[in-house]
Simulated scan of single mutants.
Amino acid sequence: MTQPIKWLQDEIADRMLQKLDIVKLDVKDVLIVPDFPGKHLNTFAKRYPRARLTSLADESVSGFAMWRAKAISHWRSLFGSRTSSLANYLTSGRFDVPDNSVDLVFSDLLLQDLADPKQFLQECWRVLREGGLIAFSYLGPDTGKELRPLAIPELKLRNLSSPWDMHDMGDALLSERFSDPVMDMEYLTLDYENSSLLLADISALNLRDSTPIKASEMNVLPQKLTLEVVYGHAWVIGKHLAKAKDSVAYIDLNQIGRKTR
């Protein structure tokens, strides 16, 4: 997600937090991926005043800007937060976070840009503690549907890296052993006064290559853009119970106890 569309990331983060209003969770450590200096930091500071925040910031956000935003949100962030690069995760496929170390993973508009969201879910499972929660949002496959019928050679539309709809994601959560997944979806319509603004946003959303479009073809561009926004959350329950592989259950020896009288 590039800088011109950060306002959308901020809006969706706010909607995600509203959906979490009814969720009761004892939060000591939060992983925010990707993170940015948005309004959500104030909400985290008020809702979880003693929580430590770990950020994976994208390349457009400097470490100092992230530190400053957290410090302004809450003084404890001066001492209890940590920021690393989202690029490191995208390269390695692994969070720079220990196993079983966070209570909440909060991911805003990232999954649509990942070729393998299942690998992301596996990493979230690894770092979440027993009883932890993953909460996420991403752009679904109907995003930008107005652009597909257009016959403009220079437009060069891209498909989302992950075309999963909410049902695909729900199935993936269950297959990765998450419990009680809750999925939701809404359509947002963005209206535009001119085509230049539309092109800037679809580029920021990674829906097109940056090839210039002829002025004569700008008139056929739509004046609106549909976003399919998918929301979800799921719990980590029974993390240390038996693991199933190839229809065989494996139990850690530490889980076997002797009954005493």
Rank of each mutant, 00 (worst) to 15 (best):
D103V: 08
Q112D: 06
L139G: 01
N254Y: 06
A115G: 14
G131S: 12
A242R: 09
S60E: 13
R261A: 14
F44R: 03
V182L: 13
K245F: 13
L139M: 12
A135L: 08
M183Q: 03
D116Y: 09
S81F: 01
W75V: 11
T91A: 13
A51R: 03
N219P: 02
H233L: 04
D165W: 02
M218C: 09
K214V: 06
S55G: 12
D246C: 08
T143M: 07
L25S: 05
G93E: 05
Q119F: 09
K39R: 14
L174R: 12
D99H: 11
Q223H: 10
I213D: 02
T43F: 11
P222M: 04
K118C: 07
Q223K: 15
V102A: 09
L128V: 10
P49M: 06
S162H: 03
P149N: 12
L139V: 07
V230P: 00
W235P: 00
F36T: 01
N159H: 15
C124N: 11
R126A: 07
K39M: 06
L109R: 01
P153K: 15
R68Q: 09
Y48A: 13
G232M: 01
V105P: 01
D29Q: 14
E123Q: 15
P163C: 08
K145D: 13
Y231H: 04
L25R: 03
S247H: 12
V236M: 07
S247K: 15
N88G: 14
L197P: 04
S247R: 15
P117D: 03
D201V: 00
A87L: 10
D10N: 15
N159Y: 13
N100E: 10
A151T: 12
L41Q: 01
D26F: 10
Q223M: 11
W235Q: 04
V27F: 04
M66K: 10
D58N: 12
L25Q: 00
G140T: 12
H233E: 01
E146R: 07
L205S: 02
D58L: 09
N159R: 15
I72Y: 10
A242Y: 08
L110N: 00
L199S: 00
F44S: 03
E217M: 13
E193P: 02
R52C: 10
D21P: 07
L104Q: 01
V30L: 06
I202W: 00
Q119T: 14
S210Y: 08
L221T: 02
L20H: 06
D168K: 07
D29W: 07
S60R: 10
K6H: 11
L147E: 13
S175Y: 12
Q3V: 13
G63E: 12
S216W: 04
I251R: 15
M169S: 01
G80T: 14
T260F: 11
E123W: 05
V97F: 07
F106D: 00
K245D: 14
L53Y: 05
D116E: 15
